[in-house]
Each structure stands twice: as structure tokens, then as C-alpha cells.
Design a protein around this nucleic acid. Structure first.
Length: 474
DNA sequence: CCTGGAGTTGTCCTA
DNA sequence: TTAGGACAACTCCAG
């Protein structure tokens, strides 16, 4: 009998058993030690936000359960920890699925080189993108900067995404190592009352993620293209945090959507293109590693931003006096999530009406979002600020009143998160300061007391933003 | 090289 | 009330 290899599978953002290329390859070769390391030394400027850590905690619990309690958990420097394990337990190979953030790429490259020096083989796989960033390039070999050609020409004419692989039947994990920590000992969950509030909105882990895909494909996809714009409808998939942690692979989502609708109706087509946006953001971050900090369009370095703590605070806490904006910011605070349409509205409001630097918005989202993801977050904020790769025209400034009336006409969404406006008629819901005194009185609203007056003049702030944009030319 | 079409997500004014 | 055009000019990208 051939000697069975001993391998480590290092879990990172692939917290699942199914369609896990690295894990499957490792198990086919022999016995596997499943390892998670909370990296305390490499993440540099982008340590996990508070909410991200909470998600991680519960996702690790679920993973550990799926592994029969055999997940080995550590905290510290991955290179040091892996090296010690390898030496101590005479391990032959290390497997992982690739991560694509700049600091992760640098870390993994270093670890691979160091382990190779010890004659240990490192095998890395693609477990979290439909296409590798370096596979999708223009004819001249440079990366795309505009979404539509990236997706249509680049992705769709490239080779089809890998089909999901089935879960190995003979998953056998070695449990002869006993040096790990308990997941609780990572201390990822602070002892705060708000934690419970967020956690109860989500079902975390691979099993729930897979169920959610099935449920979305069955119900949400039917009217996705139009329904996705309405925050009170249930047409968006809300898969983003699951995709971020790899509780489900994009390949599983991609093929389930296609199988459910082989004709590729406009709904499915549009949903696939949203997965395409995730690829695009990752591609941008890969080729422009400064994207989280640096404007992709350098001329924006001269933009006339305003620094105003009070206004920033009003935005963060959902107290701007613009109901759809406040609803979005409170949804974020209460649930760790915000509907995509509303993300655009609050983003436009911060950057264009308040004229506060998009870095402030990105930082707040990073801390509050369960789906906080460096590629998506930076690309999204650069897009809404207009300094991104393919910028929106400068005159595109969202009007929170019109957006509210268009996408939350009945006010179901707004009233959910801004209950003090519950009794205000729809006609005035998105602009309470326009309501006659009597109506406000009847609705039990005292502007400036029970609900804020608008923190800025909409028209004036729009004109000033347009002027600031016009200045950029010089 | 040059050419021409196109660009996630809007708003406002006018007829 | 509603529909259509204006709002700039630029860069990206393929041919």
C-alpha cells in the first residue's frame, strides 16, 4: 500500500465543504488536517471590522460542526503556525484556495516560498472567483476598466466557469493534533447587546447559505431585474456575506441560477451580471491594489471635500432628516446589511450632498457590514463618488426624495427603520419638512424633536456638488 | 494610428 | 400629467 500523504487544508475565505477545490484535492491524496488561523500580523490597514468578526465566529462554528469537531483553530502568524505544525507532525503538503486582497497575496506568496524552502509543497486553487483576474484581459493584455466589455467580451467569451465539484464521500480528517484553540478563545464576539440584534437576522454557515441559494433561485429570481430595485421586496439574494466567507462558491450560485432558467430570461441574465460585478471588483483590486485608498481617476485628488464631523455623525446614525437615507443607515446599524439601491442613495448623499470624502463612507461600511469586502466596498464607493474606473456622469446626483418616492412609494421600507414617521401620509413621507403643520401634528411628529429637520438644503448642495465637479477640469 | 459607438443604477426643465 | 431632450466631454474599447 502506498503511503498516505498527510496534508493541511488551510481554510480562509472558503468556509465550506462542498465545491471546495483545495479541500477536495487534499482529501483525495490522503489524510487532512483542517486548519483555520486568525491572522493577527498581516492584515495591516484592513483588519476585520467588528461585524465581520462576529460572522466569522459563527461560520467557524458551523464549519467545525461539519468537520465533526476536528477543525484546528489558531491565532497568530500563519507562517509560524504552519511551519510548526508541519515540522511537529511531519506533514507533506499544504493546500489552500486563493485569496485576492493585496495583503493576502503578499502573505501567501511569502508563506509559499518559505515552505518550499523546507521542501514542502503548497498547492493553491481557485475557490472563490468564476474567473481568475489574470484570465480576463483585453486583447493588448491590459486589464479592463469598464464593466460591460469586461463582462460581455471578457468573461462571457472566456472559458465557462468551473462546474461545482461534488463533496468527497470519503472525507476523513486526522485528529491527532490537540494543540488548537477553541473557537470561543478567539474572542471574536464582543459582549455587547447589539451583537444579538444583528445575529438574529442571519443564519450563518454553509448549510444555510446553500438553502438560501435554492430559495432565492426559486422565488427571488423570477422578478429579479425590476424587483431588485425595491428595498421592501425580497428579490435581492442577500448572498453577499455568504459569498464573502465562501460558505457558498460563486460557481454553485452561477450554475444553480442557470439550471433553474436555461432560457436565461432577462432576470437570470441580470443576476449573472451582478455576479459579474463581483468579478469586476476583484479584478480592479487585483490590478489596482491602491484602489481602497487612491482615486482611480487622479484628477479627483483635487476634489473640494468638506470635513464636518457633525454631518458625518448625522449620516452614520441615520439622522439626516431625509427618510430614505436615514432608513438605509439604520438598516445598516440594525442588521449589518443595506439593500443595494439604498446603498447608492446613501452613498450619493454622503459624497455629493454632504460632500464628505468617500473614504469616510467606505470606513463606516467596512465596520458595519456583514458583507464587508475590500474589493466590493472600495469599487462601490469609487463608483458612487464618480472617481472610479468607469465613472458615472458628473451630473448624476441622486435625489433622496425622488428615489424614495420611486423605489419606496408605499413607505414600507422607510417606516420599518424610521418608525417615528409611521403615521405620516405617503405624500409627505420622503420630505416631512414639506408637510403642513396640521399633518405633522396628526402624525405625532415634531420636526427637530421627534425626527430631525433636513441637515442640508438639497438643491443648494446639489448645485455646489456640480460646481465642485466642474472645478476638477482645471 | 484613427474612428465611432458606448458607458449599471439620474435629474430637471420644457413643451 | 407626462414624455423627451439636455446635461460635457471624456475615456474606454474594438475594429
Amino acid at each position: 500500500m502506498v503511503k498516505r500523504e498527510l496534508s493541511i487544508h488551510w481554510f480562509r475565505q472558503d468556509l465550506r465543504i462542498s465545491d471546495n477545490p483545495a479541500l477536495t484535492s487534499a482529501t483525495q491524496l490522503g489524510e487532512v488536517f483542517p486548519v483555520y488561523i486568525f491572522d493577527t500580523v498581516n492584515s495591516g490597514e484592513y483588519p476585520m471590522g467588528a461585524v465581520q468578526k462576529i460572522w466569522l465566529h459563527y461560520s467557524l462554528k458551523a464549519l467545525n460542526k461539519a468537520l465533526g469537531g476536528k477543525l484546528l483553530v489558531y491565532s497568530g502568524d500563519p507562517l509560524k503556525i504552519l511551519s510548526e505544525l508541519i515540522t511537529e507532525y511531519e506533514i507533506d503538503k499544504v493546500f489552500w484556495n486563493r485569496c485576492y486582497e493585496p495583503w493576502q497575496i503578499a502573505r501567501d506568496k511569502k508563506i509559499k516560498a518559505e515552505l518550499n524552502k523546507k521542501d514542502k509543497e503548497v498547492l493553491s486553487f481557485n475557490g472563490s472567483l468564476l474567473w481568475e483576474p489574470w484570465e480576463i484581459l483585453k486583447k493588448d493584455g491590459s486589464p479592463y476598466k469598464v464593466f460591460t466589455p469586461f463582462f460581455r467580451r471578457g468573461c462571457l467569451s472566456a472559458k465557462e466557469p468551473r462546474l461545482p465539484i461534488s463533496t468527497p464521500a470519503n472525507l476523513s480528517f486526522n485528529d491527532s493534533i490537540i494543540t488548537g484553540l477553541k473557537i470561543d478563545e478567539l474572542n471574536l464576539v464582543p459582549d455587547e447587546p447589539w451583537v444579538k440584534k444583528i445575529i438574529q437576522k442571519w443564519q450563518i454557515g454553509e448549510d444555510f447559505a446553500q438553502e438560501k441559494v435554492t430559495e432565492f433561485v426559486k422565488n427571488g429570481l423570477k422578478d429579479y431585474k425590476d424587483g431588485r430595485n425595491f428595498p421592501s421586496k425580497t428579490n435581492v439574494s442577500r448572498l453577499s456575506p455568504h459569498l464573502h466567507w465562501g460558505e457558498v462558491s460563486p460557481n454553485q450560485v452561477w450554475y444553480q441560477a442557470i439550471e433553474s432558467d436555461p432560457e436565461l430570461s432577462r432576470n437570470t441574465d441580470h443576476f449573472l451580471s451582478e455576479l459579474g460585478w463581483r468579478e469586476f471588483s476583484n479584478s480592479l483590486l487585483y490590478f489596482f491594489p491602491n484602489m481602497p485608498k487612491k482615486n482611480l481617476q487622479p484628477r479627483f485628488d483635487n476634489f473640494d471635500w468638506i470635513e464636518d464631523c457633525k454631518l458625518l455623525k448625522a449620516w452614520q446614525s441615520g439622522a439626516t432628516g431625509f427618510p430614505i437615507v436615514d432608513a438605509g443607515m439604520r438598516e445598516l446599524w440594525d442588521t449589518g446589511y443595506m439593500h443595494n439601491r439604498v446603498r447608492m442613495i446613501v452613498g450619493s448623499f454622503l459624497v455629493k450632498n454632504l460632500r464628505i470624502h468617500w473614504h469616510n463612507g467606505a470606513a463606516w461600511f467596512w465596520d458595519c457590514l456583514v458583507d464587508a469586502d475590500l474589493a466590493n466596498n472600495s469599487a462601490g464607493w469609487q463608483w458612487i463618488a464618480g472617481c472610479g474606473a468607469d465613472a458615472a456622469p458628473y451630473f448624476r446626483v441622486f435625489n433622496p426624495i425622488l428615489q424614495g418616492e420611486k423605489f419606496d412609494k408605499e413607505g414600507h421600507y422607510t417606516r420599518t427603520y424610521v418608525p417615528e414617521l409611521t403615521n405620516l401620509p405617503n405624500k409627505y413621507l420622503h420630505a416631512p419638512w414639506m408637510a403642513p403643520e396640521l399633518i405633522l401634528e396628526q402624525a405625532d411628529i415634531k420636526l427637530g424633536k421627534t425626527y430631525p429637520k433636513p441637515v442640508i438644503d438639497l438643491k443648494l448642495s446639489r448645485d455646489r456638488a456640480l460646481a465642485a465637479f466642474a472645478n476638477l477640469k482645471n
